[in-house]
């Protein structure tokens, strides 16, 4: 697979999936090979920041839930 051959644009779910797995730090070889060809760095960075924000948000929700059970 050459770099020039594929300049397919990655779809939104594809970016989201790549970033999700990156948070766990696990990625199938086949998937990352398509990632590395199709994803643009900007996409990954933006998705990563959104992912981090979502994670923070989820944790806050979780914390709220736990605390509401306490009182």
């Amino acid at each position: 697979m050459t770099v020039a051959q594929v300049q397919k644009k990655a779809s939104l779910p594809q970016v989201a999936k790549a970033v999700f797995w990156s948070f766990l730090g696990i990625r199938k070889r086949r998937d990352y090979e398509t990632d590395s060809v199709e994803l643009k760095p900007q996409q990954v960075i933006i998705a990563g920041l959104i992912g981090a924000a979502l994670l923070v948000f989820t944790l806050i929700l979780l914390v709220r839930l736990v605390i509401s059970k306490l009182v």
Partner: peptide, 30 residues
């Protein structure tokens, strides 16, 4: 690939854990 992804992930997450050095300064429970 996992290594690359794990490294980036560690880097991002490292920004949201700082107050584990401050568990005794009187932070709110949340």
């Amino acid at each position: 690939a996992s290594m690359v992804y794990a490294t980036s992930s560690i880097a991002i997450l490292s920004f949201i854990v700082w107050a584990h050095h401050m568990f005794t300064v009187g932070l709110p429970t949340a």
